Amino acid sequence: MLTNPGGEQRPPVIPCLLFGGNQQNQAASALEYYGKVFSPSHAGGLYTYPEENGSVTSGAVMFSDIELAGNWFVLMDAAAGEAEFSEAVSYEIRVGTQDDIDYFWERLSAVPEAAVCGWVKDQFNVSWQVVPDSIEDLMLSPGAWKKLQAMSKIVIADFSD
């Protein structure tokens, strides 16, 4: 939208996180937080509202983009409306080891009652799925579906019980 067309390339489809409602004016905090959680990260453009505009405060994020572990995201504060995050849209994080699962779980799980089958909600109410690369193979083990349903955080070793 506001990126430099002659500058760094962006993919043709980029998810956009619109912070409104209870998360209004949280896009800048989310940019900083996600930049620390995901590695490598790389900030793109950042454009802020010059003055209060509807439900946004001066300095809130009009448009920003950031590369998180090789994937671009756009983050914006909503100028109007009651945009809210829900489980209807989530982002899957594929990881290699239990340590990787634990890493993301510790940083992104902020709503304990939302944690089920590897799904978490972060402090901004954004839903993530923290899933091992081996999930397809794990789901072939006896009783895998029942085991997965009983888990909040996926524990790879529990599939071999």
Rank of each mutant, 00 (worst) to 15 (best):
L46H: 13
E106Y: 01
A110I: 00
D133R: 05
V120M: 03
K147S: 10
D102I: 03
V61W: 04
A83P: 06
G7E: 14
S86P: 06
L75F: 15
H42L: 10
G7A: 13
V74H: 15
K146T: 14
S134P: 02
N53G: 03
P12R: 12
Q129P: 02
F124C: 13
I154S: 07
S152W: 06
G118Q: 04
T48P: 00
N125R: 09
A60D: 07
K153D: 06
T3Y: 13
V37Q: 00
V89W: 08
N22Q: 13
D102C: 01
S109I: 00
Q26F: 00
T3D: 12
V56I: 07
G45K: 14
F19D: 09
S58Y: 03
A115T: 10
Y91G: 03
D137G: 07
E32I: 11
E82R: 08
V130A: 01
V130N: 02
V131M: 10
S90Y: 15
R107L: 00
L108G: 00
M139S: 05
G59R: 05
R10H: 13
S64P: 04
S58K: 11
I154E: 04
G54T: 11
K146D: 14
G20E: 04
D65W: 13
Q24E: 06
S41Y: 04
K147E: 14
N25Q: 08
G21I: 09
K36S: 01
W72N: 06
T97S: 15
P142M: 03
I135F: 05
I154H: 04
G20H: 04
G35V: 01
A28W: 04
G143Y: 05
E87G: 10
A80Q: 13
Q123G: 09
V95C: 04
V89S: 14
G6E: 15
V95R: 00
Y91Q: 12
G59Y: 06
C117P: 00
E113G: 04
I66Y: 04
G44K: 12
Q23N: 07
A69L: 02
F85Y: 12
S160T: 15
M139Y: 01
E8T: 14
I66E: 07
V74C: 06
I156H: 12
I154Y: 04
T57M: 10
G70I: 01
V37G: 01
L75N: 06
I14D: 03
S152A: 13
S29D: 15
P11I: 14
L75E: 07
E8C: 09
G6H: 15
K146C: 07
L46K: 15
R94W: 05
Q26H: 04
S109C: 03
E32H: 08
M76K: 07
A60C: 07
W119I: 11
G35E: 02
S160V: 14
M151S: 11
C16N: 14
W119C: 07
D65K: 12
